[in-house]
Write a protein that binds this DNA or RNA. Sequence first.
DNA 1: CTAGGGTTAG
Length: 657
Amino acid sequence: MEAAASLPLPASRFLSPPHPPPTPAAAAAPCCSRRNISCARAAPRAVEVSRPPPRPSPRRSAVAEVKAAPDPVAALTRFEDVLQTQDCNIILRHYGETRRWDELSKVFGWMQEHDMLNVASYSSYFKYLGLSRNPARALQVYGDIQEHSERVHVSVCNSVLGCLVKNGRFDSSFKLYDEMIREGLSPDLFTYSTLLSGCMKLKQGYTKAMELVNELNSRGLQMDSVIYGTLLAICASHNCCEKAEEYFQKLKDEGHNPNLFHYSSMLNAYAENANYEKADLLMKDLRSSGLTPNKVILTTLLKVYSKGGLFEKARELLTELEASGFAQDEMPYCILIDGLVKGGKIWEAMMLFNEIKDKGVKSDGYAFSIMISALHQGGYRQESKQLAKEFQAKNATYDLVMLNTSLRAYCSTNDMESVMIMLKKMDESNISPDAITFNTLIRYFCKAKVYHLAYKTIQDMHTKGHQLNEELCSEIMMQLGEAGFPSEAFSVYNMLRYGKRTVCKSLHEKVLCILVPAGLLKDAYIVVKFTEKTLIEQDNAELISPRSLENFARSFMVSGNINLINDVMKALNRSGWRISQDIFGKAIQRYVQKPDKKQLLFCLLEWMTGQGYSVDSSSRNLLLRNSQLFGQKQLIAEILSKQLGASRITGQRHQNS
DNA sequence: CTAGGGTTAG
């Protein structure tokens, strides 16, 4: 077990040529040799007597021929009458094992058409769809299974769930599992194991894992050693140290011997809190139980010491790792470098970084990214950029983290050319930017005062479904307003508003102060209406100051869309602001200029009466003077007198308050 | 001749 733990994956799986020699003899060789061992003792003579004729059966040779054919579908069709489902499964697995995904799918499609699928076919196909990173196809094929007994078959279910988990589709794996249960799946230990391994990288993974453990127990299943390993790993990565200790003890109590997986997870749990005393005790326990620490154990212990600031001990341990040949790649050095940086010893970290460069330790860029970030954070911008350049000059391959790290180094030294090179690299390597990338760029474009680029990047970030950084974006919203791009500013406001449940209260007022002077009154009205809605939902104090509301109202009455005037009045009133007579006066002036809107005018006046508002004397005179324009002289006079009467009662109340 | 689980780094 321990030996297997530190061994890499079987190399042959990756080194085997894409088209292995299809000779039946070679394919059968391992099988024969295994049989010889057992058969030699049991019945040595029977082999000679009962050996079948060397001539292979027609089914066997058909399988061999399809495996070797350049066009497997054509070959399958040729042998349609000979092959059975289990033969096709052999062929399917062959294309899976040799990683020929295109042929794999074609063979599966052919089997589907010829109604030659059984649970084994599905299980295998889902496994390879997992390996070829195609969970969507697995979901689709699973969804198309008609036969109920196949849909809830535990191996079919386990394989499709495994495919999802392997590809990071944790949410859909849990959803699908619930569906399977509803349809009648009886999950086994492997089902739970598969789902639990999905909890490892999930933010709410610990809670979900506890749910699954309860469920597993209530079904009468017993946790095995591997499940305990998974659980310990989940506890460690979710910083539940005490829970990890509890499970570790339970594992022992149930008669299991902890192995190196369990110990390494425990160490990892202690590393999170830098609990080196407990880690040392655990190491004693490990050795006394007869286990030998492997590369992972020693590396994780190094993490405990590094995080705990025990740099002397960490150094010693690193030397031990080197002596054991466990320090051939940069990982253990990275752990110590990272610890030194976080402990404020940036120059010691730098020295170790240089040391591994001199030693020629194999690097994937991790050490570079740690140092580039460390220098950046320490304020050594130029040095940080130098390292980024050095990495770039090595012509190494980039991943997302390395790109982000380099990008930040270039942005903070205002090296636009290198920024563009990084973006090009990102494109070429098909790496999609994440929130960090976007925010780095937005911050940079903002600082460089290239607001249109900042805006474009915000838009891009929003479209790709990332949550915007409110502080940064509201800063750019202001800048866009100042630079004469009010529509863009409003668009940023909307992206913030729709992206988050709550935004900072002052955001609404800020955008209003951009929109009103720019004459974008309809947009300003949308802002006011929205805050009115928020007021109802959150029941809190004013989001927009009376002063800004008044500015908006005045502008709207003068030049806003006349058809919306009444709506705006109502919205203003609902937002808790007492509309001044001056504003009503402006509205009435507008209506007097447009007599065909008389219905709207009447509505306004009626509404005012209902709300206890009244027009001032000059508006009153204006209306009476122009009442013939509206053709309803009598009606206007009536409405006004009713309003006057009403306001004598309520008006006083408002003045007093 | 069905699927299938656990440990370390930016």
